[in-house]
């Protein structure tokens, strides 16, 4: 049975979801990891597979080629700026975003940015383009900071998204996380998304939960994962129960199967 819950995105509801998270965390063992690896290995792939909640929500449909735009660049820049402003007291969010962009440009100028990377794209923009990217990143950063300020328990901005390479299955799983809230013996993960949650938002959230548990060195699942859609003013949550972790893993494997089938159909 799933523990998916739907709430309004208000400080009171958000704190109730965080404080009401189950206190006994579930741990994924090596046996679970081996079993998942075997399932992924059974789905052959010609290329290295990358799966995340977005692909799960789209039922494995491959999207058109990725392109940098102010909308796709905002989260990377905003989360970097939030971490930077947390480290340097007195640094405003817009200054922190400017510093982040400056770092990306410096990387590109010194030849460290790969072709197609964010730094490479930014270096080709005009001053106006950079200003628009800054405005878009500022929206995301301010929104994230506001939600973080609502949280009454100790929290920190996530250092990065969660990544897990499935052993011998040429598969990398990426779980999105923006804020980590520390409880006594467990943690709650907050993830922000633009737009409104669709019908498949639950499976997407469960996939992020599973990847987060797999990426933890001890396999410790978060007590709860909360997906926030500030534009729609709603949040969904899923508890780190074994049922939900299994369900998340099943959705990821199913997505790999669908991708394999569509690869096969394209080849034929």
């Amino acid at each position: 049975m799933t523990t998916l819950a739907h709430r309004r995105n208000t400080p009171h509801e958000l704190n109730a979801l965080i404080c009401g998270a189950p206190r006994t965390p579930i741990t994924l063992t090596d046996e679970h990891r081996r079993s998942l690896s075997a399932r992924f290995r059974a789905v052959a792939s010609d290329t290295h597979r990358r799966l995340d909640a977005w692909i799960v929500e789209r039922a494995g449909k491959t999207s058109t080629g990725f392109q940098w735009s102010p909308a796709t660049a905002r989260r990377v820049l905003a989360t970097g700026a939030l971490r930077r402003s947390a480290r340097h007291q007195g640094l405003s969010l817009i200054e922190a975003i400017n510093d982040e962009i400056g770092d990306q440009l410096a990387r590109s100028t010194s030849g460290f940015a790969r072709r197609g990377s964010l730094g490479d794209w930014l270096s080709g923009l005009s001053a106006t383009g950079i200003a628009l990217v800054t405005a878009e990143a500022a929206n995301w950063a301010i929104q994230s900071a506001e939600i973080a300020e609502w949280v009454s328990c100790p929290w920190r901005f996530a250092a990065s998204d969660a990544y897990y390479d499935v052993a011998r299955a040429r598969t990398t799983l990426r779980g999105r996380r923006d804020l980590e809230v520390e409880l006594d013996e467990s943690r709650v993960i907050l993830r922000l998304r633009a737009g409104s949650p669709g019908k498949s938002a639950g499976p997407g959230l469960r996939s992020d939960l599973t990847i987060e548990a797999l990426a933890h060195p001890d396999g410790l699942a978060p007590a709860r994962i909360i997906g926030i859609w500030p534009e729609a003013g709603v949040c969904l949550s899923v508890d780190g129960t074994m049922d939900d972790l299994r369900s998340g893993a099943r959705d990821l494997v199913r997505t790999a199967v669908v991708q394999r089938r569509s690869e096969g159909a394209r080849a034929a």
Binding site: S92, E95, A135, G195, E231, A232
Partner: peptide, 12 residues
């Protein structure tokens, strides 16, 4: 910056 200006804020 302390006013936290954000533009084109969408709501649904």
């Amino acid at each position: 910056g302390s006013w936290r200006p954000r533009t084109a804020v969408r709501a649904t």
